[in-house]
Every structure is written in C-alpha cells, then in structure tokens.
Design a protein around this nucleic acid. Structure first.
Lengths: 149, 149
DNA sequence: TTTTAATACTTGCAAAATACAAGTAAAGGG
DNA sequence: CCCTTTACTTGTATTTTGCAAGTATTAAAA
C-alpha cells in the first residue's frame, strides 16, 4: 500500500499554492496569512481575536499585529464586545468582504476547473470523501483540535 | 450545494497544523519549511536547488539560505553536479534521512488514527478520491503546475 | 577564439513576520 | 478593595522573506 501521507502532502501543497496565487490576483494583493484571516472572520459568528488566531495556528501577538495592518488597510473592523470589553469582535468591512468574496470565487473557479477533469460520479465521490475526512479529523483528539468545520 | 472551497480549506488547514506539530516532536525540532524541504529532497531523484524550491513555492534566494542552515545542521548535503557544475544536487544525510523518516512515521500514525474513525470501505473510498483529485490537479493547467506526484 | 547571453545559484539589504517577555485594561472573585 | 484571571497590546530581538545585484559555469554567437 502506498504512503497515505504522500497523497495528502501532494494534495495540500497544491491547494496551498492555489491559495497563495489567489491572494495576489484580480484586484486583491494581500499575503497568504491575511487571506486566511479574512476567510476565517468571514466564516465565524462574531469572532474574537483568539477565536481566529487559534485555528490559524499563529501566536496571538503576531496575529494582533496582522489584524492591525488589516484594519489600517480598511479590510477588517475591530469592535469592543459590549458585554465584555476585553474582547474585540472582528468583522469584515465592505471592502474586506469584497476581497474575501473575490478570493472565494477564484478558488472555486479553479476547483471547478480541476473537477472538470472528472465525471459527475467521481466528483460526488471526492466531495463526499472530503466530508468524511473532515468529520473523522474533527473526531480525532490527537491533532488539529481547535479547528471548526 | 455547499462551497467546495470550504471543504478543502478545512481539510488542508488541519493537515497543515498536523505537519507543523510533527516538525517539533519526537526528537526533531525543525521549522515547517525545513520539514517540507527534507520531504521533497527525500522524494525526488537527485534534485537540484530549483527543483525543490519550485514545488514549495518559495523564492530561490530564501530557499538557498534555508538549505544553508540545513547543511549546517548536518541534515542535507549539497554536491556539485559533475556534468554541469552550476547545479547543486541535494541529498539527505543519514541524520536528515532519519528525521524525515521520523516525521513521516508520525504523520502516518496521526493519519491512521484519523482513519480509525471510518470503516474500511470509507477509508478505501477516501484514499481513492484523493488519488483522483491529485490526478485531476496534475491535469489542470490553471494552477499548481510545477508539483509532481 | 573571443564575446555575448543564458542559467544556476549566492549575497546585500531592507522590509516583513515571528514570538517571548512584559505591559495595559477589563472582569470576576474573595 | 485587593488579587487573580482573561484578552489583548507593545518592547525588543530574532528569523524569514524577496528584490536587486552579484558570482560562477555553460552554451551560443560572432
């Protein structure tokens, strides 16, 4: 049997490069980490700083400064939580939302192009498999504990 | 239909964190990029600098310095190609090979743990799907051109 | 054969990313 | 009212990064 890790390594590296390319294409020009931050803010409900920093695996101090630059670029807004003002609630500005959406569309376009090399059955199988995988990883306690989805 | 990118994003982020953890566990303590470099050298036949830098998506100058530190750490060896001395052929030292193998085993152990949350049929389906995906990505010309596997 | 161009890689430098330690500010006990 | 905890920010020093410009080697052209 082949090395399972190898399959994953190839797949995730390709997807990582895809992600990297999509940051600096079509109107947006942000770094990969910044793209990840926008994505994560967009997908969580009224997230705090730590709630975004955790799944990205970056130190909170590094994250704090990254958010500062995104705020300066007018892509992210930081609002103190009225219930507990220690928390900063992160949200996307209109411009930030636009960039996040643009990247998302680009990524999906690329992925659809990839899926165009398969038949419909294969495509369905692959998508179902990734869901299975995500569920299994969520159940696993040995790794990747803090990532939702 | 759900957002395909979202499925990929969750999966690859988890795998990325896994990769990150495995670098600095069980005897080895190297950075994520260094781990990727060791992996890539281990999987290519007499690779040159550029041949490793390309699939990792890092600038050749950054890569050059990373290799320098790996050579200093006695994990990588750099040999001038006798046929064309502009090329440096990269190889793992015994110690480098050991670390690469250790990381590989750890990754596979983690992945097997993940697969333990599925039945045999699901596992087979998932593995087949990832192969399908890798083949489709290899065929795609819009992205990730330089990655072998 | 000399010159020119191309390739593979390396260094200079300046900017960005990173993380530890130490700080501030707010909330919750005791 | 103090003391602790939590959420986040700044000080500082190190590391990483990549463009520009360099060296060294090969290939091609004059």
């Amino acid at each position: 049997m082949e090395n399972i890790r190898e399959l994953f390594q190839v797949m995730t590296r390709r997807f990582g490069l895809l992600n990297k390319n999509c940051c600096s294409a079509g109107g947006c020009d942000i770094s990969l980490i910044q793209s990840h931050i926008l994505y994560e803010i967009d997908h969580q409900h009224k997230p705090s700083m730590q709630q975004i920093a955790d799944p990205l695996g970056t130190d909170i101090t590094t994250f704090s400064r990254q958010v500062q630059s995104l705020v300066k670029m007018n892509l992210v807004k930081k609002t103190p939580d009225p219930d507990d003002r220690r928390f900063s609630i992160l949200s996307l500005t209109t411009e930030g939302k636009f960039i996040a959406t643009t990247i998302d569309q680009q990524m999906n376009a690329f992925l659809n192009e990839v899926f165009s090399h398969m038949n419909e059955f294969e495509k369905e199988t692959v998508i179902r498999s990734i869901k299975l995988l995500n569920n299994a990883m969520a159940k696993s306690n040995v790794c990747c504990g803090t990532i939702s989805g």
